[in-house]
Design a binder for these strands. Sequence first.
RNA 1: CGCGGGAUAGAGCAGUUGGCAGCUCGCCAGGCCCAUAACCUGGAGGUCACCGGUUCGAAUCCGGUUCCCGCAACCA
Length: 473
Amino acid sequence: MKNKYYITTTLPYVNSSPHIGFAAEVIRADVLARYNRQLGNDVFFNTGTDEHGLKIFRNAEEQGVTAQEYCDGFAAEFTKLKETLNLSFDNFIRTTDEYHIKAAQEFWKRCEANGDIYKKNYKVKYCVGCELEKTESELVDGKCPVHPNQEIEEIEEENYFFRWSNYQEKLLKLYKDNPDFVIPKHRLTEIKNFVESGLNDFSISRLKEKMPWGISVPGDEDHVMYVWFDALTNYVNTLGWPEGENFKNFWPGMQVAGKDNLRQQSAMWQAMLMSAGLAPSEQVLIFGFITSGGQKMSKSLGNVINPIELVEKYGIAAVRYFLLSELVPFEDGDFTIEKFEEAYNVNLANGLGNLVSRTANLIGKNEIEIDIKENSDKDFEGNVKKKMDIYRFDEAMRVIWGKIKESDEFLSNKAPWKMEDKQEIKEVLEIVAQNVLNIAYHLKPFLPGIAEKITEQYTQKQITKGDPMFPRV
RNA sequence: CGCGGGAUAGAGCAGUUGGCAGCUCGCCAGGCCCAUAACCUGGAGGUCACCGGUUCGAAUCCGGUUCCCGCAACCA
């Protein structure tokens, strides 16, 4: 019987084009999905788009289109990432999908039935930029410190609230019983501290007459759900919850997110799950951010890196390689075009590409037939696994590149191009070719396209030299 | 004392449970010449931010200090 493995990314909010940080997140999730498929597990991999809320409603108004049209445009752009980033997701959920809307309403009803939803008068200052209410202590000079150029709006209305405060002890118990619940450890510490400091119930609805772009609250046509409540439920809705077979088979699952999402994923959502009577997530991975030249990416600084343009210029393998290999997933990492090109030249062109070329060439020129098979090296496999078990994609790739270096050294030592005896040459090249084929095998989750190409080349009866896979830049 | 992260070769970074300080680029010298001006070998270059402690032994653990950064700019 196959193990079930469910993994989901967060759903990016569709108010701008795909961010390189989200690209890193979804590619890491893709690696875990592909790796688990390779291990023989039955995998369900989810991503999608978060499409409700005031910010989107207003953006659409400004552009003179309906909110749905506005979202459709972005959703198409994000869907295209499947090809652009070579992703293997099984479902792409949009929070405007009919099945999501129905399930989100069902989720609401369950929380309500459990006594965790109540109505109260709500008078608070609200920052449209954050889509969040602000307490007086959070404001600086009466303005949101995050969006100082936007006016704080006063909202006074009856809202529904979620009794987050009911879940403080249960969340702390969850963290205590599952010390690996949040990876890395320091993020678990952070969320534990936050929950310990006390939880305030949060508002989960908005008046429809003011902000119609949301999912109707069950049994109250005057309200729509607050975007966070609706969006978080996608992680089970995508599995067909409440009835779907997939839900029974795959939940609970792995969740990955950027560090800005720690609170939502590991505390708010977990409390919501408990309230609805569902099991908490299996584990939450919290990734670091990507800076650009040591600074936060910002349009005004002009240092925003567009992952799609990067792929168009350098190819998807180069982009996946950099994001997976040159960054420590759980810490902030820096991107510059210089580092990117250096990594490309050193590791893909001179390293992987060159080894594949020189080996194939030597075999072809000598007209040698060799006998090798996929994944023949159990030590190699074990070393990769050790790193994958702790989600260190960078170190797993370092293991793979160690095998490349070892093969280059071996070739230089043996110098088969000086040998006369065909049998002797064959013995050397068979070892190296076997290494290359194993490298390709372990590369499949990381650089699927390239790995397939190498595998195809090296499983021919007569291996011959191909065109360079990575021309130097 | 809001919560976290960080300081390691000229630059950029890694360093898991304490055990001879590593990687890439750059620099110097050599080799090879099968391969994409690539590949291999050797070398120079370190007060592991600072002070103290634990230990046979600390980049690593503990306490303190200084300086950066994120949470918290349009954002994942």
